[in-house]
Amino acid sequence: MITLENVEKSFPLAGGRSWVLRNVNLAIADGEFVSIMGPSGAGKSSLLNVLGLMDHDWQGGYSLDGTAVAPLNAKQRQALQRDKIGFIFQHYHLIDDLKVWENLDLPLQYRDVPAKERAAQVADLLDRFNIVGKKDLFPNQLSGGQQQLVAVARAVITKPRLLLADEPTGALHSTQARIIMDLLHELHRGGMTIVQVTHNEDYAAEAQRIVRLRDGWIEGT
């Protein structure tokens, strides 16, 4: 699913360069569940941004589901991202002014899915995530766990092949975090490739593999 070859990322600094990722080589198979760990500043989020095609300023080779990313222009990268990737953020990042169902509807709108079809998909997902009763609430009317539940639903509504989760349980207490982890397992069982960044050793260990980063280098898997 993912192949990184000698991926490097750095910023120019006075008197040298600040390295964020160094010589990263990583292969993640289709349907694999991988955790990325490391101390703050190790390059976890940077790696996730590269994987999520949000960052284009790096060197090396990256192939996503058989497509070489480096030669793609911005538009093509965005199309690839829209087609393959879903995101979950630590702070949920639901749109405050939109109701729950409207938040779910948004990625489908961006993919120009017809309204009728969108309504059906949103209804399915609300049902599947057991949040039908919350559909007309605004995000600030939900608890943190409920908000992250909606965020996960929003991330998967487009049926991405790859789900990238940046500290998905970081802002949740343990009960809510458990629910989210169970949900990720369920999605994984459904065949989704999942890459999560986490500080929590227990949750990291629930993945099939842990990739550890330090100072931009992969320490071992």
């Binding site: 949000m54 991202q81 829209r82 995101f87 953020f89 990042h93 405050d96 948004l106 929003r154 487009t158």
Partner: peptide
């Protein structure tokens, strides 16, 4: 700005 970042991550292009 953060919201626009999220929207872009969810697939919105600049024109939208």
């Amino acid at each position: 700005e953060a919201e626009f970042g999220v929207r872009m991550a969810l697939g919105a292009d600049a024109r939208r």
